[in-house]
Amino acid sequence: MASPQEIQAILRDDRKLHEIAKAAFDAVDSDHSGFIDEPELKQVMCSVASDIGMDQPTDSDVRDVLRDLDQNHDGRISLEEFKVLIRQVLELMANQ
């Protein structure tokens, strides 16, 4: 796991942040459409919940996350929209 200093360095480096977001995005975008749709988002949310021992997300939970990330309201998440989530996660990790 990266240290808070390493995470801060990533947050200051747009190229590195983009690389990390792109790798995570590609792992979630199982149909390689260039977007994350609701089923793909649900799959990754369920996987993460299982990994950390949390309850499985409901369909409503998935829709809420999709709505929060989907800045242009097209019903799917683009790489740029996904980068917002990755930045937020890294910021939380850096402040632990």
Rank of each mutant, 00 (worst) to 15 (best):
E19T: 04
Q5H: 09
P4S: 04
P4E: 09
D31E: 05
R12F: 06
A23V: 08
S33Y: 04
A9D: 15
Q8I: 05
A21G: 12
P4L: 09
A9C: 02
R15F: 14
F35Y: 15
G34L: 00
D26G: 05
H32R: 13
D26Q: 15
E38D: 07
D31F: 01
I20W: 04
P4T: 05
E38W: 02
L11H: 08
G34D: 07
E19S: 03
D14R: 15
I10S: 08
I10K: 02
K16F: 07
H18E: 10
S33H: 00
D26V: 04
A21I: 00
F35A: 06
K22F: 07
F35W: 14
K16D: 14
I20G: 01
S30C: 14
I10T: 13
A24Q: 03
K22Q: 11
P4D: 09
F25A: 03
E6V: 05
D31N: 12
I36L: 08
A21V: 04
A21M: 01
I7P: 14
D26L: 10
H32T: 04
D37L: 00
S33D: 01
L11Y: 10
L11V: 06
F35E: 09
E6F: 00
H18V: 04
D37H: 01
H32W: 08
D31S: 07
S33C: 03
L11C: 01
A23P: 00
A24H: 02
E19I: 00
H18P: 10
Q8K: 15
R15A: 11
P4Q: 10
D37V: 00
I20C: 05
E6P: 08
I7N: 06
G34S: 13
L11T: 11
S30F: 01
E38Y: 00
A24Y: 08
L17F: 02
I36P: 14
A24T: 01
R12Y: 01
D29E: 03
S30A: 12
H18N: 12
F25V: 05
E38I: 08
I7G: 07
Q8M: 11
D29S: 07
D37S: 06
S33P: 10
D13K: 03
D29F: 03
L17D: 11
E38Q: 12
S33R: 06
D14P: 08
I20S: 00
I36D: 09
A27Q: 11
R15S: 15
H18L: 11
K22W: 06
S30D: 09
F35C: 09
R12K: 13
S30E: 12
R15C: 02
I10Q: 08
R12N: 13
F25I: 03
L17N: 10
A27C: 06
I7Y: 10
A27F: 15
K22M: 07
D14M: 07
L11A: 04
V28Q: 09
E38R: 10
L17W: 10
H32D: 04
I7S: 12
H18R: 15
S33F: 02
F35I: 00
R12H: 08
D14A: 07
I10M: 13
R12A: 05
D14V: 09
A23D: 08
K22P: 01
Q8H: 14
G34N: 11
F35M: 14
H18T: 03
I7F: 10
E38C: 04
L17Y: 06
D29H: 11
R15D: 14
